[in-house]
C-alpha cells in the first residue's frame, strides 16, 4: 500500500464550485471519519474485485476486474494515508487497512457483499460506481485540498468503472435467457444496499456543513435517472423498493466483511515486519 508515488495537488484545488464560500473550521474527528469512509469503500471493493483474479470468465475480463481493483486500492492508499495523518496517533494507511477490526471499518454495506456470480459482481459495480462517480465529481470541489486532488485523479478511473459495468449490465440483460435471469436476481440482491449510499447521518451532515463533501441528496435524482436509463436499455425492470439495510458507516457490518478482512489482513498480521 505504501508504494504509490505521491500525487501533486493541482493548483486551485480549493475554493471552487459549490464549496466556494467561507468555510467553517473542519473538526478533526469529522475529517478522520469522512476519510475513513472514502478509503474503506475503495479498499473493500478493491479487495472483493481482486478475489476474481484468475477466476474471471475470460482472461480479458480477468484483467478488467483486476485493473478496477488496483484503481480502487490506489484510491484507498491516498484516503487512508490522509486519515492516519488526520488521526495523529501514528497510524499510517497500512496500519488502518491491516490492523483494524471489523467494527472499525466505515465502508458501506454494498461494497462488502460477496462477488456471487459475474452478474452480481457487475450489478454491485454498476450501482456503486455510478454513485462514486457522482460523489467524486462533487469532491473535486472539496474545501480539503487532499480530498479534492485525489477525487480529481480518481474521477477518471471511476468514470471508466461506471461505463464498463453499465455496458455489462446492458449485455447481460440483452444476452441469453440465463444471463438475463442472473442479472435480475443480482439487482434484486443488491438493491436494498442502495439507500445507505444516500444516507445523511451525523458525520455526512457535518462534512457537508464545513465543505468537506457534498450533501449526497444533491445527486439522488441524477443517480436514479442514470440507473433507470441503463436498466431500460438492458430491458429489465427497476427492482421494487425493499427494506433498506443500513449501518456500515457506523461499523454495523454484514457477516461477510469479517471473512474478507481475515483474508486481507492475514499476511501482515502473521508476518508483521514482512517487506516486499
Amino acid at each position: 500500500m505504501a508504494s504509490l508515488p505521491p500525487i501533486d495537488l493541482p493548483e486551485g484545488a480549493t475554493g471552487k464550485g459549490e464549496f466556494d464560500s467561507p468555510q467553517a473550521e473542519v473538526p478533526h474527528d469529522v475529517r478522520f471519519d469522512y476519510l475513513l469512509r472514502l478509503g474503506d469503500d475503495s479498499l473493500i471493493l478493491g479487495q472483493r474485485l481482486s478475489e476474481w483474479c484468475g477466476h474471471a470468465p475470460s482472461v480479458e475480463v480477468d484483467l478488467s476486474l483486476a485493473n478496477m481493483a488496483l484503481d480502487l486500492i490506489g484510491q484507498a492508499t491516498h484516503f487512508l494515508g490522509a486519515a492516519g495523518e488526520a488521526e495523529g496517533r501514528g497510524r499510517d494507511g497500512d496500519a488502518l487497512a491491516f490492523h483494524r477490526d471489523v467494527l472499525d471499518f466505515r465502508n458501506c454495506l454494498l461494497v462488502e457483499q460477496p462477488n456471487g456470480d459475474f452478474a452480481r459482481t457487475m450489478a454491485r459495480q454498476f450501482l456503486f460506481s455510478t454513485w462514486q462517480k457522482m460523489l467524486f465529481d462533487h469532491l473535486t470541489g472539496s474545501c480539503d485540498p487532499l480530498i479534492a486532488a485525489v477525487a480529481a485523479k480518481a474521477v477518471k478511473e471511476v468514470a471508466y468503472h461506471q461505463e464498463l459495468s453499465a455496458e455489462w449490465v446492458i449485455r447481460l440483460g440483452g444476452g441469453t435467457e440465463e444471463s438475463r435471469r442472473r442479472l435480475v436476481d443480482a439487482l434484486d440482491w443488491t438493491w436494498r444496499f442502495v439507500p445507505e449510499l444516500f444516507e445523511m447521518d451525523e458525520i455526512a451532515t457535518a462534512a457537508a456543513g464545513c465543505g468537506l463533501g457534498p450533501d449526497v441528496g444533491l445527486f439522488r435524482e441524477d443517480y436514479d435517472r442514470r440507473i433507470r436509463s441503463v436498466l431500460a436499455e438492458a430491458g429489465v425492470d427497476v427492482p421494487s423498493d425493499q427494506r433498506p439495510i443500513l449501518g456500515g458507516r457506523r461499523g454495523h457490518h454484514s457477516e461477510h466483511l469479517g471473512h474478507l478482512i481475515a483474508v486481507m489482513q492475514f499476511l501482515p498480521r502473521t508476518y508483521p515486519d514482512a517487506k516486499w
Binding site: S58, E60, L63, E163, W168, R171
Partner: peptide, 20 residues
C-alpha cells in the same frame, strides 16, 4: 488480439489488456 462479444466491449478489453 482479444475475445469480446461486440466491438464496444472489444475496445474496452483492448484498453484493459494492452494500454494499462
Amino acid at each position: 488480439s482479444v475475445h469480446a462479444p461486440d466491438s464496444e466491449i472489444a475496445l474496452r478489453h483492448a484498453r484493459d489488456t494492452y494500454t494499462r
